[in-house]
Design a protein around this nucleic acid. Sequence first.
DNA 1: GGAGGCCTCGGAAGG
DNA 2: CGAGGCCTCC
Length: 799
Amino acid sequence: MAGFSKVQELRSFSFHPMEKYLEQLNEAQRQAVIHIEGPSIIIAGAGSGKTRVLVHRISHMLNKGVDAFNILALTFTNKAAREMKGRITNLAGDEARNLWMGTFHSVFAKMLRVEAQRIGYPQSFTIYDTDDSKNLIKDIVKSQGLDEKVYKPGVVLNRISTAKNNLFSVKEYQDNPELNNDDRIAGKPHMALLYEIYQNRLFKSGSMDFDDLIFNTYILLRDFPEVLHKYQHKFKYVLVDEFQDTNYAQYIVVRKLSAQHENICVVGDDAQSIYSFRGANIQNILSFEKDYPELQTFKLEQNYRSSGIIVNAANSVIANNRGQLPKKVWTENHDGDKISLLRALSDNEEGSIVASSIFEERLRRQWVNHDFAILYRTNAQSRAMEEALRRKGIPYRIYGGISFYARKEVKDLMAYFRLAVNPDDEEALKRVINYPKREIGKTTLEKLVIAAERESLSIWKVIGKIHSIETGITAATRNRISDFGSMIKSFGAMLKTHNAYELASHISGSSGLLKELYSDQTPEGISHYENIQELLNGIKEFTDNGNTGLPAPSAEQELEPELRTLDVFLQDVALVTDADSDDQEKDTVSLMTIHAAKGLEFKCVYVVGLEENLFPSQMALQSRTELEEERRLFYVAITRAEKKLFLSHAASRYRWGNLTGCEPSRFLEEVGEEFVESVVNEVKRNGLADERRANWSGFGNSGKAFAGAAKPAVLPGPGFRRMKSGERTSEAPVSEQLPFVADDSNQIVVGMEVEHQKFGAGKVVNMEGVAADLKATVFFPAHGNKQLLLKFAKLRIIR
DNA sequence: GGAGGCCTCGGAAGG
DNA sequence: CGAGGCCTCC
């Protein structure tokens, strides 16, 4: 192996006074950073400084004279790549620009652009997103006369995706008795045929779906030794982040790429593997150990993120999974506050309790909105949270949901861009051939598709010969089609003569799309128009500065102005999602699914909806492995918290329109009871439906974590009650133990003199609101008028 | 071609 | 319940 002398150099280096950046690391981290030669695996516990190690490791390579061009680093998201690249630049300088760093998809797309012709694809291939793929499948199923109920687009696409992720080509799929048998048993015997047609249509369209970006890279490296050789020699060092989330195909490609130098370093945490449902293969970690017997293993076990309670509670949960890689996550951080268990009668009440709690914690601990996150299993749970936060006037931001680029109007304009770059792109063409209206209807389109099938041509090629190919389309319509073709051709001709913005605005104007959108003055119509403006603004920024204000992978170096053309903009943008936008300027509480929270951290975290059939999801109760993935998800949720964690569950919840009773999640029992305190929430009596009240009994002591919790013998009386002070444990911070005893806020009326813990004595000048929203305006000589929500403000009555 | 009624179905989501 | 797809009717 070429790097022997380098190893020596590094070893001696590690005994000498080190560069400052190495001093900032603990011993395990330092070892993982300096041993850059040979295969290695870094098992990184939650909050153990994994990103830090990756950043330092790459910086260290650069400082040791490794050329950035020879380093390939694969990340889970574009955002992660961008952030890491920035940090490496800070540590190692501008050289970092030349790193190949990005997601599997973006890096492989970049390679495929260069090599595509070898596998029969145009250099300008376009990329289908999931919607495009499903639309195509729907078409194919229909045209094959198959039952659309049986061959649902999503299901078919999943099957094809799984095949590709496991490197089954169409031919291999068709020849595989086991796969065919599975399909037959599942009542879908034509799956292999659909795969074949789907793949042909993609190929004719000069398009790849997301999985093709991996699969075709594999084909390229497998079938073209010179390509394999080229990249094997280029990538002397290969790093893979979030290795537990890679699928088989990704692993095989990475192995091939690094086969020459075998300087491959993978980083991951088996306990945080939460994406097996879309093909991630936790087995890759075990395979890696088998494939590289000389592997160096580094374990990062010290957690810097969370309090002792949180780290240990997380450990107690994950211990219920079988077969975790042996490691012991520990921390030097203080134990901190116990985990608080919140219970609500209903999903809506859960929302108000969480919102109230945020309000209170924010005040009490002097935290800002930004320090709080509400994490849930399903997006549907966000509604109750939102409503409650809005009622309390707490600003929030929901992450996830529909992406900017998934919006119809944005996709429509992007379809024109795609056609300019690659007119064979069938999904783009079908999308806009009659939008805005050009009197080229469904029937005509079907005729075009049939002719294309018959002639083995793309629809675009048929359009090019529309007057010479037999389609059964009338002359008048043929002329309209040919006009459309000329327009697209003229867009394509402008690609190299105009910059991205010039062409994009030209297209949006002369396609008639802008006018179409402008004519709709309904609120939705206006918002569609604004989204198009936003897209155009982003392209303007791309043209002017080489990057975009839109969510985009600007991990790449800035482009030369002459390269800022629309085709280049499009290449990047297909692989971008909203997760890539950082929009941190506003001080808001974050709402997101646990999946979306991976890699993030917050001072204070609320994990809500801890109920059987919701979390764990009822769909995961079939098998142990699925349940274990749910548990890892819970582990990820817990370990997002730095200082304070709340877990909550409701006794009833609206699911699909029905009020259903909910049992506390089994996961609650798995949190060691020594880490948990139960909080008796103030509960409004008003507005509680009788059925829900009856459900109170459902709060039984089934969870040992809250077995000792006070269970009210009767429902709280009118108004509300405050938390029992006796339930605070002796481990609470000193600030909570100040002997300030508040009086029952129900007693407070206008005109009273009261004392506030912070503001001192004051006089109640006004009262408004009812029940939990009861607010008092109190005049404090030193602070002026203060609005205090009586639910939280601890007030002592003076007289 | 579009509006409106009916039916179905519901998970998490990177690229 | 509510979103989205599909069908029907104009």
